[in-house]
Design a protein around this nucleic acid. Structure first.
Length: 887
DNA sequence: GGGCAGTACTG
DNA sequence: CAGTAC
DNA sequence: GCCC
């Protein structure tokens, strides 16, 4: 939370920053004076002596023989290509096992050079020659580029204010000379917040030449939807074992994400959703003071003119017309909002905006009730826009503080509403195991009911994100600190909770259909301890716990029984005192069972002990009262213990399909962030990447949708910060941090890193030397040097990035065959009246008789997606890639 | 506060 | 051996 | 950034 707040503050600060920061401003904010830096820059500038492109001989005037040798080798097995990379022995350590290659291979590359050998030999020699030409250029650049460490690394916000003067540019980027590594590290230490989100934006390097980034998809973005990955296994040469080939091809449409980022230094926000979000938020803020105009504007833009009406009036009207609306609703929508009496807050509070109306309509359409005014006695939910303004909300509701919102009333954002129905569906798969081990009939009953009723009853996670709208209310429903009165919750909660003993999770709409939903609320309301239970019991349902507890079968079920009974008893029996005692009780049983199981598996870890400890602590506390912290801790430890159990060691299980994942969206975001850190040089970032890797891996293999902060935190490898980020993603669907980190330089560097054999150091160096695009690199702009390996990597980078998915077959063919094979294949195709290129096999191409190269029409593509298809048409028997060598 | 995998290649 | 890369 |  504090992290988030910090970001918000930072965001504001940056946004408030003048375009061209003046010295005073910088001095004030950073305690820094540009003039100083300029001096430094100047000093350094002397040694800079930019190596002009023209000055350097680029062509292969050197011993091609040697390089060709390399090439020859390359031509056979890929390993030889990796000459200078340490990856020969193994790709990763056992722990890192290839559980999800996509993490590591999330970049576009990893072209196993094997496939390209044929053609590689052609291009290679040239490259090698040039590379060896400038033995000294390397040194030169290092010194010239590496800034005095005290001046600031790219990471140091303090020392890296936004400087736009070209002079400084080169110096602003740090390509730490080897010997300066230490100093850099040191310096990195006083970057106060682990990572200054604006370090980049404020201090980032400005392109010397304004080469606009071409539309080269940046690695990370292509990695997701826009890309498909074809993993094909090809056996290679005799002694070589099977190697995996990964060709990543992008779909024809790079997608919006590929849009180049804006270059403005003062708008750190990256392109895409994040930026729009930010600005959206800002716009909203600005909107508040002068709602009228905005409303008018909005209305104007709307197609038909509507009378101005306040949200309240609109809601009222809906209410009044309920019956007729309901009638229309029946036909099409499932009433999953039935029983929910929603107070909607958002947008323009003076006049209902288009959006507001739509949303209200939506609520009605799906069976909910729109309550015009905030009335805690009536409403069951508060729904807000994605980023509600607390002050505005308070104004509208007349509340003094967000704390005045009763805990039993969830405050959720609109996305919660629209995601609710979807959430239900995919969540069901896990239940099976639970059933098998679990005995509870009523439970089963619930399930069936839940299923048939799935449209109307969201699953548990639904409740656990409940107070998402206002971060300040995240603790709502948490076990109240020792004081006991929080317990005297709304009557309904007690009743409903009691009514649904079958299941602690709020699934059951059992009782009154209409009032049913209140049970959910009450469930959540009773206190957080219980809601925690819900979460955990959900695990239970999800089978793993059940399975684990199978041994003490009696015990396994009891766990549930206890739990189930528990809320009831606590509510019924003890109107006030120490209800928490019981709420924790089920955990003990479970924990014990877990521990036993754990012992059995000898996978014992310290978790066990802490779990025990906590358990005892919990017990102790039970006699008094359970502190919030303790409960949290307990939940944390407990969840983790379970995870340890169910997951075991990574090496115990095969690599899972890294396809669908319950938290895929979160994974994607984290991965994106990981990539951004990967582009940075500091040790700190290095470790962050390491950590993100672990976290992502853990998240991937996590079986169910994460529901709350604590749940995330419980996952080994996910700590406070990451859990917060996850929470943010869950709640907002976005991670602001990404926007802050994603800057031009980072993206360029990332792109360079996409080249096989290029890591962050090299990428940085290139950038520092003025390279911004792959073409720059090809042109050896700034006098950069490329190793043989990098040459090849570069050669094929674009190819692999730009092969449209549909063309993968043809592309594979193209890349796996050697020169001769390809030529012959194409020749045959031509003879047969087709035309083959790397995009596909075409038919009906008419060429100009006098100029064969000139196509008179495009022809029609008849095959491209698979190699088999193409070969079949051409009447060529299938051949493994290694069999396609003719040269 | 310190560790965070292990190994190979380049220069 | 340090730096770099995977 | 996480964990011990």
């Amino acid at each position: 939370m504090s992290d988030l707040e910090w970001f918000f503050r930072e965001e504001k600060r940056i946004l408030d920053m003048p375009e061209e920061p003046d010295e005073d401003y910088l001095a004030r904010v950073y305690g820094y004076r540009p003039s100083e830096d300029a001096t430094v820059a100047h000093e350094r500038g002397t040694s800079e002596a930019p190596i002009k492109d023209a000055d350097r001989p680029r062509e292969l005037n050197v011993d091609m023989s040697e390089s060709l040798n390399e090439v020859q080798k390359v031509t056979v097995p890929p390993e030889d290509l990796h000459i200078n990379q340490g990856m020969t022995t193994k790709r990763k350590s056992s722990t890192e096992r290839t559980v999800d290659p996509s993490v590591r291979h999330s970049k576009k590359r990893r072209l196993s050079p094997e496939h390209k050998k044929g053609s590689a030999s052609v291009t290679l020699a040239h490259a090698t020659g040039s590379a060896s030409d400038n033995p000294d250029s390397h040194e030169l650049h290092q010194t010239s580029v590496g800034p005095p460490t005290d001046a600031a690394g790219p990471q140091s916000p303090v020392a890296r204010p936004p400087i736009q003067q070209p002079v400084v540019k080169e110096t602003t980027i740090t390509s730490p000379a080897p010997d300066k590594g230490k100093a850099r590290e040191h310096e990195a230490n006083h970057v106060d917040p682990p990572l200054h989100p604006y370090s980049k934006s404020t201090g980032r390097i400005i392109a010397t030449n304004n080469d606009k980034q071409p539309d080269v998809p940046s690695p990370q973005q292509a990695s997701d939807d826009a890309t498909r990955t074809t993993h094909a296994r090809y056996s290679s040469h005799a002694k070589r074992t099977v190697k995996s080939k990964v060709i990543e091809v992008s779909t024809a449409n790079p997608g919006p994400a590929a849009a180049p980022s804006s270059s403005s230094v003062t708008t750190p926000a990256a392109p895409g959703p994040s930026s729009s979000k930010v600005s959206g938020a800002r716009a909203k803020k600005a909107e508040e003071p002068k709602p009228k105009t905005d409303a008018l504007k909005k209305e104007k833009s709307g197609k038909k003119k509507r009378e101005l009406i306040t949200p309240r009036e609109y809601a009222q009207r809906l209410q009044d017309n309920l019956s007729e609306v309901a009638a229309t609703r029946k036909s099409r929508a499932s009433p999953y909002l039935r029983g929910k009496r929603i107070y909607y807050h958002g947008g323009d509070m003076q006049y209902a905006s288009e959006e507001t109306r739509k949303r209200m309509d939506y609520i009605i359409r799906y069976g909910g009730t729109v309550v015009p005014t905030y009335d805690p006695e009536v409403i069951t939910h508060i729904v807000t826009t994605e980023k509600p303004s607390a002050p505005a909300f308070l104004r509208a509701t007349g509340l003094r503080s967000l704390r005045d919102i009763p805990n039993h009333i969830p405050t959720v954002t609109w996305s919660w509403v629209i995601r609710a129905p979807r959430r239900v569906i995919p969540e069901t798969p896990v239940e099976k195991g639970g059933e098998s081990t679990d005995v509870a009939d009523n439970n089963k009953g619930d399930k069936t009911e839940q299923i048939e009723d799935s449209s109307s009853e969201p699953t548990a996670d639904y409740h656990l994100i409940v107070h998402a709208a206002f971060k300040d209310r995240l603790d709502a429903g948490m076990p109240p600190p020792p004081s006991n009165k929080g317990r005297s919750k709304p009557q309904q909660s007690a009743t409903s909770a009691a009514s649904g003993p079958s299941r602690p999770t709020p699934q059951e709409p059992k009782s009154g259909r209409d009032g049913s939903d209140t049970s959910i609320i009450s469930e959540f309301t009773v206190d957080r301890v219980e809601s925690k239970q819900s979460a955990i019991l959900d695990f239970d349902d999800s089978s793993f716990l059940g399975k684990l507890a199978a041994g003490p079968n009696g015990a396994g079920v009891p766990g549930r029984a206890t739990v189930t009974d528990n809320p009831k008893s606590s509510l019924n029996n003890k109107s006030d005192s120490t209800p928490e005692v019981d709420s924790l009780a089920p955990f003990y049983n479970q924990a014990r069972a877990e521990r036993e199981a754990e012992d059995l598996r000898s996978g014992l870890s310290s978790e066990e002990e802490s779990a025990k400890e906590i358990g005892n602590g919990g017990k102790r506390a039970a006699t008094h009262a359970v502190s919030k912290k303790r409960v949290r801790r307990f939940v944390h430890v407990f969840c983790r213990a379970i995870l340890t159990l169910i997951q075991g060691f990574l090496c115990d299980s095969k690599a899972e399909e890294h396809t669908a994942c319950a938290n895929q969206d979160v994974v994607n975001k984290l991965q994106e962030l990981r990539e951004l850190h990967k582009a940075k040089l500091s040790k700190e970032d290095t470790w962050k990447v390491y950590t993100y890797d672990k976290a992502i891996r853990a998240l991937r293999s996590y079986p169910t949708r994460i529901r709350c902060y604590e749940e995330a935190l419980a996952i080994p490898g996910i700590g406070d910060k990451t859990a917060q980020k996850i929470t943010e993603i869950l709640q907002t669907g976005d991670l602001r941090r990404i926007g802050y980190e994603k800057t031009e330089d980072i993206e360029a560097i990332n792109m360079f890193q996409g080249i096989y054999g290029v890591g962050r150091q090299t990428a940085y160096k290139w950038y520092a030397n003025g390279c911004r695009t792959l073409d720059d690199v090809r042109a050896r702009k700034g006098g950069i040097k490329l190793s043989t390996c990098q040459e090849i990597g570069l050669e094929y980078y674009a190819d692999f990035l730009t092969v449209p998915y549909e063309s993968r077959g043809a592309a594979l063919l193209y890349y796996t065959g050697d020169d001769i094979f390809n030529r012959s294949l194409r020749l045959k195709a031509n003879k047969m009246g087709y035309s083959l290129n790397q995009r596909g096999l075409y038919q009906g191409i008419v060429r100009n008789p006098s100029n064969k190269l000139e196509k008179l029409n495009e022809g029609t593509i008849i095959a491209s997606e698979t190699e088999e298809e193409i070969l079949r048409i051409l009447g060529v028997p299938w051949q493994e890639p290694h069999e396609r060598i003719r040269g």
